Amino acid sequence: MHKRRAQEISASPNMANVSYNETPIYIQHVDEKNETARIYPLDDPENEHDVSLNELKEDYR
């Protein structure tokens, strides 16, 4: 996922269909310098972790 799009999603009040390893996730924060995102699975909000932006996929349906 592009850095700019990840930032738009994290700042938006609307939910976007984004996944990490085919798991639907929520993007909390984007680290521009390291090109990572702080995420958590929608069904497990306590499981926060940082991942590379390249590993995030947006479903445009």
Rank of each mutant, 00 (worst) to 15 (best):
Y40W: 08
I27R: 03
I39P: 06
L42F: 06
N17V: 13
D50P: 07
E48K: 11
A6M: 01
I39G: 04
Y60I: 15
T23G: 06
K3C: 11
S19M: 06
D50K: 11
I39S: 04
I27F: 05
E48A: 07
Q28D: 11
T36I: 12
Y40H: 14
Y20N: 09
L53Q: 09
D50Y: 14
E58W: 01
A11W: 11
R61F: 15
T23C: 11
R38H: 08
K33Y: 05
P41V: 04
I27Q: 02
N34S: 14
N14Y: 15
T23R: 12
L56C: 07
Y60N: 08
A11H: 11
D50M: 10
K33H: 05
N14K: 14
E58G: 06
A37S: 09
E46Y: 02
E46R: 01
E58Y: 05
V51A: 09
V18K: 02
I27E: 01
N47S: 06
A37E: 07
I9S: 02
Y26F: 10
S12T: 09
K3F: 10
E55Q: 12
D50H: 11
Y20V: 08
E58T: 01
P24F: 08
H2A: 04
N54G: 10
A11Q: 14
H2K: 07
I25Y: 05
I9P: 05
V30C: 03
V51F: 13
Y60T: 12
E35R: 15
N21H: 06
Q28R: 10
M15F: 14
V51K: 07
H49A: 08
L53D: 12
M1N: 11
A16F: 15
S10K: 12
A6Q: 07
S10P: 08
R4T: 14
D31Q: 00
L42Y: 03
I25K: 01
P41L: 00
V51R: 09
N21S: 14
N17R: 14
E8Q: 13
S10F: 09
E32T: 07
N21C: 13
P41I: 01
N34H: 13
N17D: 08
L53A: 11
A6P: 04
P13Q: 10
P45H: 03
H29M: 05
Y40D: 02
V18C: 01
V30F: 10
N47A: 07
A16T: 08
V51C: 13
N34Y: 14
E22V: 12
E46G: 00
P24Q: 06
R61W: 15
L56V: 08
D31R: 02
V30D: 05
N17P: 05
L53N: 09
E48M: 13
D59T: 06
M15D: 13
P45M: 01
Y20P: 07
V18G: 02
L42N: 04
V30A: 02
T36H: 00
P41N: 04
Y40Q: 04
M15P: 10
D44L: 01
L42C: 03
V18S: 04
H29Q: 10
E46A: 05
T23D: 06
I27M: 01
K3H: 05
D44H: 00
V18I: 03
S10I: 06
